[in-house]
Design a binder for these strands. Sequence first.
DNA 1: CGCGAGACCTGATAGC
DNA 2: TGCTATCAGGTCTCGC
Length: 273
Amino acid sequence: MAELPEVETMRRDLEREVVGRRVVCADVAQTRMMGLQTAEELRQRAEGGTFRSISRRGKYLLLHLDGDDTLLIHRGMTGNFLLRDPGQPLDPHVHLALTLDDGRQLRLCDARGFGEVRVLASDDVRVLHRRLGPEPLEPDFSFDYLVAQFGRRTALTKALLLNQHLVAGLGNIYVDESLWAAAIHPARRAHTLRAEEIAALRGAIVDVLNEAIERRGTTFSDYKDLYGLPGGNGAHLRIFHRAGQPCHRCGTVIQIIRAAGRGSSICPECQVL
DNA sequence: CGCGAGACCTGATAGC
DNA sequence: TGCTATCAGGTCTCGC
């Protein structure tokens, strides 16, 4: 999975590695990851472009080319975006391979094809920005904003946190981690949360994300960084994928339940409904 | 409009 | 050993 910390880690690495580099060759396989865009159009618009800057919006990675075009990448669940040296053996399930003017190659690999890759004009980038909720690490993800949203919503707290229109960048890992840190059950209805619980939840989300970014993201199965290396946050997970092990706060055995259609790791003692 | 269920997809794994 | 069923979940669509 690639949630905000993994995408942000990749953004920072790409900023250092590819800004100023030119795409001399774009090999594109037509897949559903491109939506209605053809592989040929993607190739034509990417080839010859120079990377001017790299940004991120939620879980979307945006590689801005000179001119009006931006390469958009969403890694879905199993997607990896790798920077390979010349001559390195092909990776499986390559959808897109960009050969740079220094000989290195950016490869988008995704076995399942749940991700997305397209070239967008700046108008489309603006649409994407408007479509998504606030960035959780920026000031507009405020206590007041969350109180206003949660107060009028009856959905499960977990469902709202996974909803990218409400806040952009959280996925199953960091939602479970944040809910545990704030001692809130994932199936609590959002409008039943007290003000102090909302404050705790907001603080937990910020802390959990910042710590994960510091450790270059979480790897427990597929995720690899730009260099093909795992992130360092896996060993620091407090609740996610720890079913059967003791809660770090109270020692109770961690369980997996279903909430908002997702497997959800909880401490049944700390997180009561 | 908000909510929740189902669809999409394929590799890993459990069960027979 | 090899087959089949099930599960994983980010995002979109659809019905209520």
